[in-house]
């Protein structure tokens, strides 16, 4: 048996396979299929200061090997999250990472500060600096100075380690990666969805009420790999790879490109057992190849 135990920013995770924000709700629905404590971690649906209704439908559309979504950060708000969702996650011994968004630096800080009251339950905060579907959400991930300031401000206000989740919708992702490292981030997760669009040729209408949405799924995996690889060359921070991961080979690719752990996203929709299958297969793969830990693979891509 290989040892899947994974360490990120001094925190131990049972394995390197996490659930990506926005693809697992607050964990409740998934307990029909497996125990949440079997995961490396669960990253919650984005939490904002106030509850948000989200965008009107249609919110989703299937594309070739991918999908578009514009949910609009529908969520219960941080207070209700703490009173209603955290007890459930605690009961199920989930390793809890909370994804946080705000309209301003102050709002990110207020949500993070509120989470301090459950700092025993929340192992990390993931800053959603990059939701493409909400006005102003993109700004933090586009300007290095803003990205750095956001991380710095949140770090000041909470002892909970912070992951900066980066957007691929930038001209140079390494600039942002370096900026959040300077801001004091404990880890990076990447990538969020790519801005995309689809049109109904019969009605001439966009397929999403928000007109544009975020592209996810297997279609974006090569983009994610390239960005993880480039970021890993630019910063020392541990990277959590996200983008189209469906099976153990995908995970190995991300690790070779520099990821220390991964998040499974869209694949949860198609088969909720995906993270369980991947953990199981990863164990077998490592064993067969003579590795004792997934950490031995991190950044081991062989480039001439």
């Amino acid at each position: 048996m290989a040892e899947l135990l994974t360490e990120i920013a001094g925190i131990e995770f049972k394995n390197p396979v996490w659930l990506a924000s926005g693809t697992c709700g607050y964990g409740e629905e998934l307990t029909d299929f497996y125990g949440l404590d079997e995961l490396g971690a669960i990253v919650t649906k984005t939490i904002s200061l106030e509850p948000r209704a989200g965008h009107p439908p249609p919110r989703v559309f299937e594309t070739s090997s991918g999908m578009l979504n514009a949910i609009g950060l529908q969520n219960v708000g941080v207070d209700k999250f703490i009173s209603e969702k955290v007890p459930f996650l605690r009961k199920h011994r989930a390793k809890l990472v909370v994804n946080v968004a705000g309209r301003s630096v102050d709002e990110y800080c207020r949500v993070s500060e509120t989470l301090n009251s459950v700092s025993d339950d929340v192992v990390m905060i993931e800053l959603n600096m990059s939701c493409p579907n909400v006005a102003s959400g993109m700004e933090f991930s586009k300007k290095p100075s803003l990205a750095s300031e956001l991380v710095k401000s949140v770090k000041k206000i909470t002892p909970i380690p912070v992951i900066a989740k980066l957007s691929p919708n930038v001209s140079d992702i390494t600039e942002i990666a370096v900026a959040v490292e300077e801001g004091g981030a404990d880890a990076l997760s990447m990538i969020n969805t790519l801005v995309g669009m689809a049109v109904d040729v019969n009605t001439f209408k966009p397929r999403l009420s928000n007109i544009t949405g975020g592209l996810s799924g297997p279609a974006i995996k090569p983009v994610a790999l390239a960005m993880v690889y480039r970021a890993s060359q630019a910063v020392k921070l541990p990277i959590i790879g996200i983008g189209g991961i469906r099976n153990v080979e995908d995970v190995i690719e991300f690790m070779l490109c520099g990821a220390s752990a991964v998040q499974v996203g869209t694949a949860n929709f198609i088969d909720p057992m995906t993270p369980m299958n991947i953990s199981h297969d990863l164990d077998i793969w490592l064993e067969r190849k003579g590795f004792t830990s997934p950490s031995e693979l991190i950044g081991k891509i062989e480039v001439e």
Partner: peptide
């Protein structure tokens, strides 16, 4: 009826008002 990426509540895609 609705377009349903998951069908069991985690994607928030198939909503109605």
């Amino acid at each position: 009826e609705a377009l349903m990426p998951c069908g069991f509540g985690i994607c928030m895609g198939c909503v109605v008002m």
